[in-house]
């Protein structure tokens, strides 16, 4: 089932990109359109193949692909991804130092690290090392916020 959805999504992406390229000048659309047609046809082949596989394995439980994950694992993955999105969103407002500290400590906690001293010491040392390497040594301006 997942393969069918995946192949259809690829086909839709190809169709959307093709539609977006229709009004481009001929020279600019030549290369992407060729690639999009080939990829679109291939996605239909994949779709046909996934239907064939689905029909073949319909009655055979052992051959069905298993995507089932324990709810706790799904929760953890979603939580870490949410923390990552929040990290990128807040870094331009609160700055690198505060946001990275918050991200590291909260994510470590989400991943079941319960040794508070380890969490604190790791977060501080990582921030200092990354800050020194990127900010001082490589002269890359790290995102600044309200305090730093």
């Amino acid at each position: 089932m997942g393969e069918m959805v995946g192949s259809l999504l690829v086909f839709l992406v190809c169709t959307f990109y093709y539609y977006m390229s229709v009004e481009l000048p001929p020279q600019a659309k030549f290369f992407p359109q060729i690639i999009l047609i080939i990829t679109g046809v291939l996605s239909l082949l994949w779709f046909a193949d996934s239907i064939r596989k689905y029909a073949k394995n319909k009655d055979d439980e052992s051959k069905k692909p298993k995507f089932k994950m324990p709810p706790e694992l799904v929760k953890t993955i979603v939580a870490v991804l949410a923390e990552l999105v929040l990290y990128v969103t807040l870094i331009s407002k609160l700055g690198y130092f505060i946001t990275t500290f918050l991200f590291l400590t909260i994510t470590m906690y989400t991943l079941k690290m319960r040794r508070h001293v380890v969490i604190f010491a790791t977060s501080i040392s990582v921030i200092v090392v990354i800050g020194l390497v990127f900010g001082k040594f490589l002269h890359i301006q790290l995102p600044k916020g309200i305090l730093f």
């Binding site: 870490v80 990552l84 990290y87 790290l142």
Partner: peptide, 12 residues
């Protein structure tokens, strides 16, 4: 520890 540290490195 590895996961958040690498994730932060990837973002930066």
């Amino acid at each position: 520890i590895i996961i958040p540290v690498i994730a932060s490195l990837c973002v930066i």
